[in-house]
Nucleic acid binder design. Structure first.
Lengths: 209, 209
DNA sequence: GTCTATAGCCGGATAGAC
DNA sequence: GTCTATCCGGCTATAGAC
C-alpha cells in the first residue's frame, strides 16, 4: 500500500515515481481536460502501465485533485511577493512581469487552472473563496493606501488584479489564437512583445497624473 | 431524412426543434466541454429523447460543429463595428463596452469558445488563421493610422486587442473566481464595476499625452 | 510492485416497431 | 418522426498470477 493517508515511510523511489506520474498527468489533463483525459494517456505519456498508476493513486480523480492542489500554492506565489514597501507602479509592473513569465514557463499549469475554473472550479472553489480572496483583499488594501498617498493613480485595485490575471494568462491559455492572429505558429517571440506592451500599458494606467 | 446537406424543404417545426436542441447543447457543452458532455445530458436539458436528437443531427460531433460555427459570426461582430471614422479613444472604449456587454449577456457562448481554444481550437483553427486574423490586421491598421495622426497614444494595436478580449471575457469565463474573490455569489453587480473600471483604464492607456 | 486479464459501466450510435 | 431496445467500443477499476 503506497497510497497517501498512511503514516508509512515514503521511499525515494515512490516519491520519484508519483512525481513522474503527476508530470505526465499535467501534460494530459492540461491538454484534454478531466473528462477528455484517460488513464491510458497518462500511462503512455509516463511510460508506466495503467494498473501500475492505479497502484500509486486511488483513482483518476485522486491524481487530478492532488495535482491541482499541489500547484495552487505556486500559482499564488507571485502575488504574495508584491511588496508594500516598494515603489508602487514598479511593484505592480514587476508583478505583471512575474505573471507573464509564469505563463510562458508553465503554460500547462495555466491551462489546467483555466479548465478547472471554466468547469466551475469543483475542486478548488473553497480555496478561491478562502485563501485567494484573503490574499487579494490584503494586496488591494495596500494598493488603496498607495492611491490615498498619491503614489498610484486612482483605480479599483481588485479589478486591476483581475486585469493582470486575464491579460497575462491569455498568452498561455489562448496561445493557439494568439499564434493564429500573429501568424507565428512556432517560436515564443510574442511573449517578448507582450512583456513590453503590458509594462507600457500598466504604467500608463497606474502612474499618478 | 431531416439532416442537413439535402435540398429538401425545411419546415418550421424542424427549424424550431433543431434550434431547441442547439440551445440545450450550448448549455451542456459550455459547462462541461465537448468530452465532458453526453448526448443524454442534451436530451434531458432539451426534453427530447437521445435517438430523437440523433435523428436531427448525424452525431454529437455534428451538433458541436454546427453550434460553434454558427456562433463564430456573432462573436466577431463587435470588432467589425469599430468605426475608422469615429473618435479613436471613444471608438476603442465603445468596443470594450460591447465586448463586456456580450460577456454578460452570453456567458455560455464565451465559455464555449474559451473551451474550444483551450483544447487547441480543433474546429475553428482555420477561421482563426483566416477571417479573424484578417479582421484584426485590418483594425490594427486603422489604429496605427490613428497613432501616426496623434489621435491615439502609441501602442501595439494587436496586443491592445488581445488585452480587450482577455479582460472582458474574463468576467464570463472565470465568473466563478470573480464571484469568489468579490464575495458576491449572486447578482451581476460586478459587471457594472467592471464597465467603469475598464473604460477608465483603456482611456488612460490610449489617450494621447 | 508490476504485470495480464477482465469485470462492469457508460456513452454514441443504430435497428426496428409503431 | 419518435419511441424502446440494444449493440459495441472505450474507460475506470479490480482480481489475481508472478
Amino acid at each position: 500500500m503506497a497510497r497517501s493517508g498512511t503514516t508509512q515511510k515514503v521511499t525515494r523511489i515512490q516519491r520519484e515515481k508519483t512525481q513522474a506520474i503527476m508530470d505526465a498527468a499535467l501534460d494530459v489533463f492540461s491538454r484534454h481536460g478531466f473528462r477528455g483525459s484517460t488513464i491510458d494517456m497518462i500511462a503512455k505519456t509516463s511510460g508506466f502501465s495503467k494498473p501500475n498508476i492505479l497502484y500509486y493513486f486511488d483513482s483518476k480523480e485522486a491524481i487530478f485533485a492532488e495535482l491541482i492542489n499541489r500547484l495552487l500554492k505556486d500559482w499564488l506565489e507571485p502575488l504574495i511577493a508584491l511588496d508594500d514597501h516598494g515603489e508602487p507602479v514598479d511593484e505592480v509592473c514587476a508583478y505583471v512581469r512575474r505573471k507573464l513569465d509564469l505563463a510562458q514557463a508553465f503554460p500547462r499549469e495555466s491551462r489546467l487552472f483555466a479548465n478547472e475554473i471554466l468547469q466551475g472550479a469543483p475542486h478548488i472553489l473553497p480555496q478561491l473563496a478562502g485563501p485567494l480572496r484573503d490574499l487579494v483583499d490584503q494586496k488591494a488594501q495596500v494598493m488603496d493606501r498607495w492611491i490615498t498617498e498619491g503614489r498610484l493613480a486612482p483605480c479599483d485595485p481588485v479589478h486591476v488584479i483581475f486585469m493582470i490575471w486575464a491579460s497575462t494568462q491569455h498568452y498561455a491559455d489562448f496561445d493557439v489564437q494568439v499564434r493564429a492572429v500573429l501568424n507565428t505558429p512556432e517560436s515564443d517571440d510574442h511573449f517578448q512583445q507582450a512583456a513590453i506592451h503590458l509594462d507600457q500599458m500598466f504604467r500608463r494606467m497606474l502612474t499618478p497624473a
